[in-house]
């Protein structure tokens, strides 16, 4: 081997390694599917189909965690939690793809049982009555301390064991207003799979959410914008604050999903702290112009 070829190939390998560490820049532009439909079941099925179909994310025998927002003791019309039909349709798709287990849970803000029942998600998931589907409540014992080596603000935080061990973690936030962070989307929804004193996350919230996203292995983000809570979020409570948009956004890129959903509110994606900080960490694309966007007809 000549010295020149050695140097060139070594540099090329190093460059490739550097690029692939980021993980997202090598696979082409971030693909994102969005659509609008009053039939939410159909909306979910079409969106996931255009994203490559559930079998692309869920292999036969896989353990799947679907994490909706069940944070508040509010009804579906109030727009504070993910819509039950979106959750159940994703479960159906995962089962059709051959998942061995589908787990559904959230660490709620209000009393957990009231949230599960009144959001409609608990009864809807139980109605599937399939042994492979497990909806359960979060307990302290579920969390394991996890090192966050890429974190700029957080070095360690307890994370739900089932998420870390899942073959496929699907994040299913509801798009809504948030007093502190302006909007709460996918990265903020991850707060439902972390333990500890979550109040402390609110100092430098955007950076901490980005740090957490480096260790929460998100295969798919499905943002529920069927009802958009425009004011008094994240908890809401007034129907007047809810805009019915019948819209869904899905992507394998968690940052792209959040960035695109931000535009639905007429807000610049880079003005959302968590999106901007996650982009800086190389977790995904936030420039809508650079995304490969498929719009359902």
């Amino acid at each position: 081997m000549h010295r020149r070829t050695f140097i060139i190939s070594a540099a090329a390998t190093a460059a490739l390694a550097a690029i692939s560490r980021k993980g997202y820049s090598v696979s082409g532009p971030a693909r994102l599917v969005t659509g609008k439909n009053k039939d939410y079941r159909e909306l979910v099925r079409q969106t996931i189909a255009r994203l490559g179909g559930m079998p692309a994310f869920v292999k036969p025998g896989a353990v799947v965690v679907i994490k909706p927002n069940i944070g508040w003791d509010r009804t579906p019309e109030q727009g504070a939690d993910t819509h039950p039909v979106i959750v159940t349709t994703l479960i159906e798709l995962a089962l059709e793809a051959g998942a061995s287990t589908v787990k559904v849970f959230d660490r709620t803000c209000n009393e957990a049982r009231m949230c599960y029942v009144n959001s409609g998600i608990g009864p809807a998931v139980e109605a599937i009555s399939d042994k492979r589907v497990k909806i359960f409540h979060v307990e302290d014992r579920h969390f394991v301390n996890t090192r966050i080596t890429a974190g700029k603000n957080l070095n360690e935080w307890p994370i739900h064991k089932e998420v870390l061990e899942a073959d496929c973690y699907i994040n299913v936030p509801v798009a809504k207003h948030h007093g502190l962070s302006d909007l709460t989307l996918g990265l903020k929804n991850n707060m439902g799979v972390i333990g500890g004193n979550r109040g402390l996350i609110h100092m430098s919230l955007g950076q901490k959410l980005a740090d957490l996203a480096t260790v929460i292995p998100t295969k798919l983000t499905v943002i529920d914008a069927t009802r958009m809570l425009l004011r008094h979020g994240p908890q809401g409570g007034r129907i007047e604050d809810v805009h019915v948009a019948d819209t869904l956004v899905a992507s394998t890129d968690p940052v792209a999903a959040d960035a695109f959903a931000t535009t639905l509110f007429g807000i610049r994606p880079d003005s959302i702290e968590s999106t901007a900080r996650a982009y800086e960490l190389g977790l995904g694309e936030m420039d809508v112009a650079k995304m490969d966007i498929i719009r359902l007809q």
Partner: peptide, 25 residues
């Protein structure tokens, strides 16, 4: 209270269950 010491927080506002918000900012 943290925001009165120059640090953003707003956890109380987020959790206030009154639809019109008894805690505002």
């Amino acid at each position: 209270c943290l925001p009165y010491r120059g640090v953003n927080c707003m956890v109380c506002e987020e959790h206030c269950p009154v639809p019109d918000k008894a805690i505002r900012f």
